[in-house]
Amino acid sequence: MSEPITGITTPIRMEYRYTPGTATSLFLRAMKEGRFEGRRCPSCQKVYFPPRGGCSMCGVEFAESVPLKNTGTIATYTVVNVNFANRTVDLPYVVAEVKFDGADVTTSLLLKGVGVDEVRQGMRVEAKWIPEDEWDFSLANISHVEALDEPDAPLESYKDAI
């Protein structure tokens, strides 16, 4: 006789169609062309990347878009020791909060080429793009970030992004 039932799987699936707003569309169109595009708050002058429609601190709508560089600083990071569904990265790995040069907020990206015991705040990194013929309207155009052969950035330069 078969074993009694003690567990069941109850998968839940939701199918949405996502339509980005103006700021995210600006960001995604720039990504498709291999560029980083942020937006600046006219009140506090902070640059958001990825851009948003308005400044969450000032409550002001953004107007000016700002091209950003491919390089940045690790403001903070997480060492991931437990994989989740659909992740195929070898454990452990580092997810870095990267403050790209010219931006005032951070973006979460996979860090490669640096051991989990070597990563540190202030580390300078560069975004690595997937092959150009695969670029889409997606942040996934950035496969990961890698360390630059540069001295660490001073805390002062990224402390407001932590």
Binding site: T6, I8, T10, P11, E15, Y16, R17, Y18, T19, S25
Partner: peptide, 15 residues
């Protein structure tokens, strides 16, 4: 711009 956005939660439940 518009794209599919699918969320799946493969829950396992103790009965």
């Amino acid at each position: 711009l518009s794209a599919p956005h699918i969320m799946e939660f493969p829950y396992t439940r103790s009965t």
